[in-house]
Design a protein around this nucleic acid. Structure first.
Length: 732
DNA sequence: CAGTGAGCGAGCTTCCGCTTGACTT
């Protein structure tokens, strides 16, 4: 049944594409990893080649078992991945009719393993391996004319990677089920990601905010001229540091009595070069910061652009190159196209003399090009009616970044003025664009121009206003998806295809919650992280992945056997694991003594435990006493619901998002997304405010409350402004 | 951006890295 169904579908594919092709029967089969790539290549190669996709890995270790024989050289047991049998069947049937099979999976480590697996499963006498790292006519021609064999050292490096990851994941996870909670997980990538997030949180908690003051002033060369604003830079030749309010006022008093003049005037030229085109990681970062997209959303949209849209009635056409890449390399053909486009649409001024060459980082496997539009002439404006809003936004980002990367550098003029009066030096700086270069495309906010009046050294300046402002040092910021991906990539942890899935895994495991795009570790994560760092420090080391890569490199170059590299690692790991099995605290029994709450039923103490629905308080006398209580994180704010005497509690939805609800739920259903700050609204009766921009907003009357108190005084005849924060808004 | 939540302690869970639709609301 199944087979005949497949054949029918198969025939229809041949029929539909057969019309466009000459009626020649294909004699050669080319197998690639991606479906969209297969279509593109088939068009280029013509009728004597049939191009099919295997859709990634076809064989892997079994999911329910370890699948690694530790006693016998870590011999892995592979199986056809459940659900992939159909594809394999199709490839087998097809290969029987062919003269030659070209294994054309990606040229990286995983790609080599895929070819090896395909080679094992397709019993065909003539199989060759071909590689290319860009989908262009020339590259394909060269690849087909120079077939080779599967690089078994590369395959072995992949096996080493696979086995090591399996051992780490499938040995540590069960330990966590036993000690903490069922369903938990640990792994080389996810556990380090969680560690980074946890350690950032610790830094934030340890951080104590310090108050300091800054002083600025307005000066003017004459009564008619526009004034310029400058910041106090130094006092008595030392960099200005003003920790207290009183000192700020003292300095302001003295500043008010000085006669000021221009002590220095400098103009410097500075060049700015464009960024290289996108990789997966930088695309995810830019889309996160600029468009507010999650990594998952970015990848979904990029996949859509890669697969193509129906534009202008004709067939589907891929709009961007492959979106999972660690390379910034660009095909020569595309660079030439960009230059021609610039010549037509801009002027030659914007074309750099030398075509830029962007160099990859060492760790890049360079199996694909950078992410770029397939045709630079397909401008975002032209595609406007064919793409969804989000697809267009992402395409616009990719298109501009690529074109900019092929453009001339920008030239800026930076002018600096030093204004001196007695022991005080003020500084002002302005940037002017002399030649926009690539910025003509990007129009970044950072490129805002500012102007300083032309001044000569020695000119006297009148002091028009002084301002003192209270500031607080800020704690390090929490990770966003984008900044986490950046850090992971820098440390060589994870690959382009896994950044987004890793984030959703640690979220599913309830290790992190998402609050307005910011990643916050749960107490479960902090507990698990503490247990793992303490007991299995080798794996939790942020440098572990980098060391693994070094080991795999020696396998790839043929210097070492993969089993030996795994063995060396495992001997050490096994020891740590053995100790951990007995030494690791048993949280399932002990719980965490974080609260001092008494049990209402038996007088025992309530301890924190981790259940299926998250954290809860349980009686320490379990199983004799089965009393439980929800964990309440108080915000200190009263419930806004009329007549309700409840309090507002911080909670987490089962999708992992923070929200704020009434402690009297389910009787009171009050709910809010924003954290309530327990401060009465000065305009109405609301018992709390919510944060908004730099200040607050009232949830009841919607009025804005600025978190600034401005006091106006005078120093002699000069206006003096004092700006203070009204309350503690140190943490944003 | 998005627009939210309920009664738990067992259930057979878990890794990373290649690929995509198939499910729901």
């Amino acid at each position: 049944m199944k087979v005949s169904g497949e054949k029918e579908q198969f025939a229809s594919v041949e029929k539909s594409s057969g019309k466009k092709r000459k009626p020649v029967v294909s004699k050669n089969l080319v197998i690639v990893e991606s479906g969209a790539k297969a279509k593109t290549i088939e068009k280029i190669l013509g009728p004597s080649f049939r191009v099919e996709s295997c859709y990634g890995h076809i064989k892997d270790l079994p999911r329910k078992k370890l699948g690694v024989d530790i006693e016998h050289n870590f011999e892995p047991t592979y199986q056809i991945i459940p659900g992939r049998g159909k594809i394999l069947k199709k490839l087998r049937a097809l290969s029987e009719k062919m003269d030659e099979i070209y294994l054309a999976s990606d040229l990286d480590r995983e790609g080599e393993a895929i070819s090896w697996h395909l080679s094992q499963e397709l019993k065909h006498p003539k199989k060759v391996r071909i590689v290319f790292n860009q989908v262009t006519r020339d590259a394909l021609k060269k690849a087909i004319e120079n077939p080779g064999e599967i690089d078994l050292n590369k395959v072995d490096a992949q096996q080493g990677r696979r086995v090591l990851d399996r051992l780490v994941g499938y040995k540590i996870s069960p330990l966590l089920w036993k000690k903490v909670k069922r369903g938990l997980s640990a792994g080389r990538v996810q556990s380090v990601a969680v560690r980074l997030i946890c350690e950032r949180e610790e830094e934030i908690e340890k951080f104590s905010s310090r108050e300091y003051w800054t002083i600025s002033a307005k000066f003017s060369p004459s009564k008619r001229a526009a004034s310029l604003e400058a910041k106090l830079y130094s006092i008595q030749g030392k960099k200005a540091q003003i920790p207290r309010e009183g000192q700020a006022h003292e300095h302001a008093q003295r500043i008010g009595k000085q006669a000021f003049q221009v002590a220095g005037w400098e103009e410097k030229e500075k060049a700015r070069w464009p960024s290289p085109p996108f990789t997966t990681s930088t695309l995810q970062q830019a889309a996160g910061y600029r468009l507010g997209f999650s990594t998952a959303r970015t990848m979904r949209l990029a996949q859509g652009l890669y697969e193509g849209r129906d534009i202008g009635g004709k067939e589907r056409v891929g709009l961007i190159t492959y979106m999972r890449t660690d390379s910034i390399r660009v095909a020569k053909e595309a660079q030439l196209e960009a230059r021609n486009f610039l010549k037509k649409e801009f002027s030659t001024q914007f074309i750099p003399q030398r075509t830029p060459i962007y160099k990859n980082r060492k760790s890049s496997q360079d199996a694909h090009e950078a992410i770029r539009p397939t045709r630079i002439s397909r401008t975002p404006a032209l595609l406007k009616d064919h793409l969804s809003k989000d697809h267009l936004k992402l395409y616009d980002l990719i298109w501009k970044r690529f074109l900019a990367s092929q453009m001339e550098k920008a030239l800026m003029k930076i002018s600096t003025v030093d204004i001196e009066g007695g022991e005080y030096v003020f500084k002002a700086q302005a940037t002017k664009i002399r030649f926009p270069g690539f910025t003509a495309i990007l129009k970044e906010k950072a490129d805002k121009e500012s102007v300083l009046p032309s001044l000569k050294v020695g000119i006297k300046l009148a002091l028009e206003e002084i301002t003192s402002r209270q500031e607080f040092t800020q704690p390090p910021s929490r990770y966003t998806e984008a900044s986490l991906v950046k850090t992971l990539e820098e440390k060589g942890i994870g690959r382009p295809s896994t950044y987004a899935p890793t984030i959703s895994t640690i979220r599913q495991r309830q290790y992190i919650i998402l609050n307005r795009g910011v990643l916050i570790p749960t107490s479960l994560a902090r507990l698990v992280n503490e247990l793992l760092v303490e007991n299995l420090p080798t794996i939790l080391d942020t440098e572990f992945s980098a060391r693994m890569e070094e080991g795999l490199d020696t396998v790839e170059s043929g210097k070492r056997k993969w089993n030996d590299v795994v063995e060396e690692f495992y001997q050490h790991f096994e020891k740590e694991l053995k100790v951990a099995e007995s030494a690791m605290r048993d949280i399932k029994k002990e719980g965490l003594k974080t609260s001092k709450t008494m049990c209402e039923r038996c007088g025992g103490t309530m301890i924190l435990k981790f259940g299926r629905w998250g954290e809860f308080l349980a009686c320490s006398n379990y199983p004799d006493c089965k009393n439980t209580m929800p964990v309440m994180k108080k915000t200190g704010a009263e419930c806004l619901s009329p007549g309700c005497k409840g309090e507002i509690i911080e909670r987490v939805s089962n999708k992992g998002k923070v929200f704020f609800g009434c402690s009297r739920f389910p009787e009171c259903k009050f709910i809010s997304a924003q954290e309530p700050i327990p401060r009465k609204c000065p305009h109405c009766t609301s018992p709390y405010l919510i944060r908004f921009k730099d200040g607050f907003k009232c949830p009841a009357c919607r009025k804005l409350i600025k978190d600034e108190i401005v006091t106006k005084r005078k120093i002699g005849k000069i206006p003096y402004k004092i700006i203070k924060k009204s309350n503690e808004t140190k943490i944003g």
